[in-house]
Design a binder for these strands. Sequence first.
DNA 1: CTGTTAGCGCATTCAG
DNA 2: CTGAATGCGCTAACAG
Lengths: 341, 341
Amino acid sequence: MTVSITDVARVAGVSASTVSRALRGRPGVSDEVRAQIAAVAGQLGYTASRSASSLASGRTFTIGVVAPHIGRWFFGTVLDAAETVFSAAGYDVLLYNLGSPEARKRFFTRLPVRKRVDAVLSLLIPDLEEEEALRSLGVPLATTVGGARDGFTVVGIDDHAGATSAVRHLVNLGHRRIGMISGESEPLHWTTPIARRQGYLDVLAEAGITHDPALEADGGYTVEGGERAMTELLAVSRPPTAVFAQSDEMAMGALRALRRHRLRAPDDVSVIGFDDHELAEVVGLTTIAQPVPAQGAEAARLLLRQLDEPVAEPAPTGHVRMPIRLVLRETTAPPSPRSPL
Amino acid sequence: MTVSITDVARVAGVSASTVSRALRGRPGVSDEVRAQIAAVAGQLGYTASRSASSLASGRTFTIGVVAPHIGRWFFGTVLDAAETVFSAAGYDVLLYNLGSPEARKRFFTRLPVRKRVDAVLSLLIPDLEEEEALRSLGVPLATTVGGARDGFTVVGIDDHAGATSAVRHLVNLGHRRIGMISGESEPLHWTTPIARRQGYLDVLAEAGITHDPALEADGGYTVEGGERAMTELLAVSRPPTAVFAQSDEMAMGALRALRRHRLRAPDDVSVIGFDDHELAEVVGLTTIAQPVPAQGAEAARLLLRQLDEPVAEPAPTGHVRMPIRLVLRETTAPPSPRSPL
DNA sequence: CTGTTAGCGCATTCAG
DNA sequence: CTGAATGCGCTAACAG
């Protein structure tokens, strides 16, 4: 039924090896024969079986991408960009969506990518054990989140610096009661919330503002969570006059909460987000912008480069820092003296 | 280096065939031996090579998912849900992001999924030729967009009905000059824009409103496009008092355009979207809601069911219609008599 | 430049 | 219940 390399060889009147060489552009085939083989292959609708060729060659021409919640804007966008780079280079991508703890556990215990991929791009931060599991794969590794880690090429931003700019902006506007909407680092062992929180704490300290734990609320990095968190912050005895949300999605949830309370940003409460979500501009959200598609594309490129290299040394894992910048829009302003808060 | 089935066999003191049977839960192995083999395999960290097993068995335990722009909310969300179902069932997913015409062409001419997947879920609408190419794969097919098509299981919504509700809502509010922001069906050969447009035209006709082509603008299904389109609509000699955007993302772009023109929805122009994007509520957008994750999950389930079936008959391809509903929020209202338009 | 010979690691007959 | 062959389709030496 399905046409194999020997079919092509027979019709073209050559051997299977010649067909293999010809179709993969390897040297050692006369142009004439090569053209003829290409013609026959096209006519027969031949495509090499990936299973067979990877079994024989050891290469899979497939990249594994591990991500938490591809439905979220940040990860979806990174994945989109990375996939584009990979497929343009002739690689397929195997996607593992590890949103739930169960999915994550299943993945790391069974490690389905073993022997199936030439490299892995992780959009989530592995814990120590998971990190080791990935390294045991023996393939190039990259990630777009978290800090430097052994054996990984990391392309990311300086979360601490981003949070610092955000909070300092609020301080510069004159705010003293500054709340934060964050997300738990568990169960995903995520370091981003930790780094961003540290930035928040550091700026408060440098501004001589005593930290009030009541002004921190968990928004779980979702819109709904952000709304709940803002609602909580509005309910404390002395609510904040400004809020730093660790992601734009939570910031937008916060804006929704404000609207529900008949309050407005920045008149009643200033809000600053993080990411520069594609819809941030629609709602006029001031935020810390980071180049999201660029991170995915760059990580993909670095991974491919390692694959192309003559399989030398202990892999030239690098650490690329992408630029971030404060994007001023309409949800931050000096605290209003007539603020009802 | 890498441990193979024969290594396990040797250590366990049995043959490779027994290991194969034992590990895959096939009958014909005593519980005792099976347990011992499992222990050895675990200890050695053995995982069967997918390439080898699929070469030998013909099954790949992999599903191909073809999508345009995974970065877009709708597709990312569908993919997320589908992947969750697939991986829970032990299948891996190979992702093909066909956002650009080149990527799309490359995919359909080379058909990299051939012999690599057990089924394909397409989130884009193939044209006739592409449809045929997919059918030639000889595997179960499903899609979450477009109408019924031969050989495909389709899980979707009634786009025409959705558009009809949206526009009828505007008519019921008293609007007569109703614009539409749509997207081209090319180059993705997408039927959604066509069906939604037809709903628009039909309602206008039933309401006795003559269709004015000047009130239609292309928003390319993106936020920026929606903004441009709204800007165009505001520039016609008699601008619309209400606009139906074929997607929430375009609707949000339209809202941004209004803000830039110091206009407001619904005071100056009513806006209704389509999808019920996760951020639609944040901006108070009235829209037509459709169950997005449910579509991905259901399509995945139906595909798996076909795979489980004893490979009988011409595949029980079905057509599931998901419910849609009008979600009233704050961007639509009767036309204002004091409207500056 | 091209054909021949061996596997790659596993699933499947078919015997026992 | 288990083991010994055989082949999946291809690539990689090795000869010519």
